[in-house]
């Protein structure tokens, strides 16, 4: 009765419900049996088209750096309960994997991968100090994941290299899964119209 109109406790229950799913995922990962092999994309030729693609990759890498910092800092805030923290750590691991693939591709193409900013900069830019509860953190993370999924999907058309376009589809769908779980946990709604990302 009391929590009927409380989106945060609703959210918490929802995340605990999804906790079972996350635990199953964790089990798989710890068995060392990921669903998909890590992407083996490469970039060889260097052209002006390639320069453009490197630019897109650099932006994506900067975005992953920011996401990693957000999860790391919010994860260490003490605001998250064990079940939620476990899920957050799985997502953090995905973002670290994304970072590694992107940085490797940039280096192989002759670029210098962008470095992360300082934690102080991320805390200020993302207003992380304003997060006061688990519900706040979950909503905040959902927002970042939605932005990331859209950034990936929205830049596929700018890529010249089809293998990179495939990588961006993989990156975008990872973020979309993160968003879906977090949005559900936060008690968020889902649009009726198709094409949730673009």
């Amino acid at each position: 009765m009391t929590d009927t109109f409380d989106p945060i406790s609703l959210g918490r229950r929802a995340l605990f419900r999804t906790g079972g799913m996350a635990a199953a995922g964790l089990g798989l990962a710890s068995l060392g049996a990921p669903l998909m092999a890590a992407p083996k994309h490469t970039m060889h030729k260097k052209s002006s088209a390639m320069e453009g693609d490197i630019g897109v990759l650099q932006g994506a890498l900067a975005l992953e750096h920011e996401g990693i910092a957000a999860y790391r800092i919010a994860g260490g805030s003490g605001l998250l309960s064990k079940g939620v923290l476990d899920v957050a750590l799985v997502f953090l691991g995905h973002h670290q994997g994304h970072r590694d693939s992107l940085a490797k591709l940039i280096s192989e193409a002759g670029g210098k991968p962008v470095e992360p900013k300082s934690d102080a900069e991320y805390i200020k830019a993302l207003n992380i100090a304003s997060l006061k509860s688990e519900g706040d953190v979950v909503k905040f993370a959902a927002g970042l994941e939605q932005g990331a999924a859209n950034a990936y999907v929205g830049q596929v058309a700018a890529l010249q290299d089809h293998q990179l376009a495939h990588l961006f589809a993989q990156l975008g769908t990872d973020e979309a899964v993160h968003w879906a779980i977090l949005n559900n946990a936060a008690g968020g709604s889902i649009a009726k119209a198709p094409y949730l990302f673009g």
């Binding site: 975005l63 830019a125 207003n127 927002g143 970042l144 939605q146 932005g147 990331a148 859209n150 929205g154």
Partner: peptide, 12 residues
Amino acid sequence: QAKCGGCHSLEA
């Protein structure tokens, strides 16, 4: 928020 929020915000 959805399309630009991955990279931009108003204040930072």
